Amino acid sequence: MCGCYVIFSKKLNRFYVGATQDDLSTRIEHHNQAMYDKNRFTALANDWELFLFIPANGYPHAIRMERKIKAMKSSVYIRNLCKYPELLQKLVSST
């Protein structure tokens, strides 16, 4: 299933936003095992947990949502996506 995902590390107290068309649990497992590259941001921690998953109409849609969230550069925005369904709906429909 294609979608945009947000994972959170308690160790780093940081979010990571990504897009996937693969199995989500496998994707998170790979982040935790630093399988995407030892020098990447997610390799700094191994306690990544799913914070939010947003289903997409296809992989290009997932990428657009990922870029929009990253452009906001705000953990408050990410938390508000969970808190306010209308904000999440606006993101999905505007990308």
Rank of each mutant, 00 (worst) to 15 (best):
E49F: 01
K90A: 12
Y36E: 04
G3T: 00
A34H: 14
A56K: 09
D47C: 06
L52W: 03
L81H: 02
T95A: 03
T20G: 03
L87I: 15
K70C: 08
S93M: 13
A43D: 00
A19L: 06
R79S: 05
A34N: 11
S25H: 13
L87H: 10
A34L: 07
E66S: 01
K68G: 01
L52T: 09
F15E: 01
R14I: 05
Y36L: 09
N13H: 10
E29A: 11
C82V: 13
W48I: 06
I7K: 02
T26M: 14
P85S: 09
M72T: 06
V92S: 04
E66L: 06
T95E: 15
F8T: 02
Q89Y: 12
T42C: 08
F41C: 05
Y59I: 08
S94P: 01
T95R: 10
I63Q: 07
L44G: 06
R67A: 07
N57H: 11
H61K: 07
H31D: 10
Q21P: 05
A56M: 05
S9D: 06
M65N: 05
W48L: 03
S93L: 13
F53E: 13
S93E: 11
M65P: 01
C2Y: 01
L50E: 14
A62D: 07
F53Q: 10
D47L: 01
Y16E: 04
D22G: 15
G3E: 03
I63A: 09
A34V: 06
A71T: 04
K68W: 08
D37F: 02
I78V: 13
H31P: 02
A45P: 11
P85K: 10
Y36T: 07
L12P: 10
N46E: 04
S93T: 13
Q89P: 00
K38V: 13
K90N: 09
A71Y: 06
S74I: 08
R67M: 09
A62M: 04
M65I: 01
M65G: 02
Y84C: 03
A56T: 13
P55N: 15
L44Q: 13
K10P: 00
E29Q: 07
R64E: 04
D37Y: 04
L24C: 08
G58E: 07
Y77R: 02
N80C: 14
V92N: 00
C4Y: 03
T95M: 13
M65Q: 07
N39C: 04
A62T: 00
K11M: 11
G18P: 04
T26V: 14
K70L: 15
F41Y: 06
K10L: 12
I28A: 04
M72L: 14
L91Y: 04
S94N: 12
S94R: 05
S93V: 14
R14Y: 13
S94K: 10
R27Q: 11
T20P: 03
L81M: 00
I63W: 00
D23I: 12
K70T: 08
H30G: 10
D37T: 14
G58P: 13
T20L: 03
L12N: 05
S25Y: 12
K38C: 03
W48H: 03
T95F: 00
R79G: 10
F8R: 14
K38F: 05
H61N: 11
R27K: 11
L87D: 02
I69W: 00
L12C: 00
K10W: 09
L87R: 12
N13K: 14
K73A: 14
S75G: 05
L88H: 05
A19Q: 09
I7M: 07
I54H: 08
L52A: 09
L91S: 00
K90V: 07
R67T: 12
I63G: 02
